[in-house]
Design a protein around this nucleic acid. Structure first.
Lengths: 230, 230
DNA sequence: ATTTTGAATTTTGTATACAGAGGTCGTTTG
DNA sequence: CAAACGACCTCTGTATACAAAATTCAAAAT
């Protein structure tokens, strides 16, 4: 028996009165993805298109497009003629996902070690120092900026895949809780060092390790949050 | 000035009168993807939804869902409020794509080297021998079967990503032309050997190399086909 | 009691309708 | 003559309508 989906209302106070950048489908994707990754929607739950449409006050057209996107991301299983179901997301899946993230980001890091300009390396160092410092109000932004500089020099398709892998996984939800940030600082320092040394293989290994540990942290966090309780 | 899309008719004699497995969107995806990967639709070409709908004799609903999927695959650029455009697909993109394919398939091969049962290795060997033999009428199927056995033991998310990477790139279009099959035989033999030796690192390297060379072959093939002519 | 059957209902997939953003092209104005 | 403007048309995004597959549920049969 598949559980029935019950949708909390749309983002409280969201929906900036008039600014609409993409289409409604994008909003729906963000909403449903958050519901899934925070555990509000449990694996196996069937998505009722009309209920979701009513909850977000849109028609089924943008809903369907959103479901297709989430299906492509692997967060939903789309079964023809019988709708969308929240995909299973086991600890093994999370670990595996971060491992994949690791090999791709590792490739990017290896390329960066060879191709970053001295100028860009300086930027990287500057950001890292603010990250180490820890007084910044937005560590998440600094973390993002660090990886951005590295990923920016990767070829187009690699950047595309990194964006894809980044989206379909909990990130903001666990980052910078507990001791994760201290660990991240050490990892970033090691990666930076390898980049400065222009040691592509070492940069790759350290980036893979960084992402691997991130996966472990993500699983631990989700477990603490009761993500896998019923 | 963006070029206007002109669509050849649907698959000649296709559309099995009554059997419909997925939805119409799947058909549209297949059709447009083929148009793009064969070069019938050039990068920069704008996709006219109505024209495409008319050409395939369906409504815009399945068309839009298909465009979303192809957008996720990176074959189309979806620009809000101004439609879908065939994405740029340079030789560098192809090479990069296969390189990514390589690191992911390499991970799968490393896992396979550690986890394939003796029985599965025997299957692998059997398939490879038929592949070497070359008398089979369907080398493509044998190639597919070889990789399938290796990928089958990879964790779920890795398999998901492999399927994704496999789709959004020319494959059938270039495989087994020229001397590619002879090269593939050598690569497969090397991979098989590493798997038999349970040498995960070597299996990874050889799989990466195999995919790298496949990318080179794909680019060469596309160039011969005039994919990058105007 | 469990399984089977079949109408009633729900829900998906597809088609169609409609409003507004975006593009076109000729005209006006400096 | 070039740039700016604006009426007109096109196309996208969203909503709604409709046919058919899937599910539900109660009565009948084993």
């Amino acid at each position: 028996m598949t559980e029935l989906a019950v949708f909390p209302g749309p983002y409280p106070g969201t929906r900036p009165p008039n600014r609409r950048r993409g289409g409604l489908a994008d909003d729906v994707v963000l909403y449903v993805r958050e519901q899934i990754l925070t555990g509000a929607l449990k694996p196996g739950t069937k998505i009722d298109q009309e209920a979701l449409a009513a909850a977000l006050d849109v028609s089924r057209s943008p809903i369907r497009e959103a479901l297709v996107i989430l299906g492509q991301e692997g967060l939903l299983d789309l079964i023809p003629r019988r709708g969308a179901v929240v995909a299973d997301l086991t600890p093994e899946d999370i670990v595996d996902h971060y491992e994949l993230f690791g090999v791709v980001a590792g490739r990017a890091a290896a390329i960066a070690a060879n191709s970053l300009s001295e100028d860009e390396i300086d930027q990287l160092r500057a950001i890292h120092e603010r990250f180490v410092d820890g007084t910044s109000d937005d560590l998440s932004a600094l973390n993002w900026a660090f990886h951005r500089i590295i990923n920016r020099t990767a070829p187009r398709r690699t950047r595309w895949l990194l964006r894809l892998l980044e989206r379909s996984v909990p990130a903001d939800y666990y980052e910078f809780t507990d001791g994760w940030d201290a660990q991240a600082v050490r990892h970033h320092a090691a990666i930076l060092e390898a980049v400065v040394d222009r040691d592509a293989e070492e940069a790759r290994r350290r980036m893979e390790h960084h992402l691997h540990e991130s996966g472990v942290a993500a699983v631990a966090h989700l477990e603490r949050q009761g993500f896998w309780e019923d």
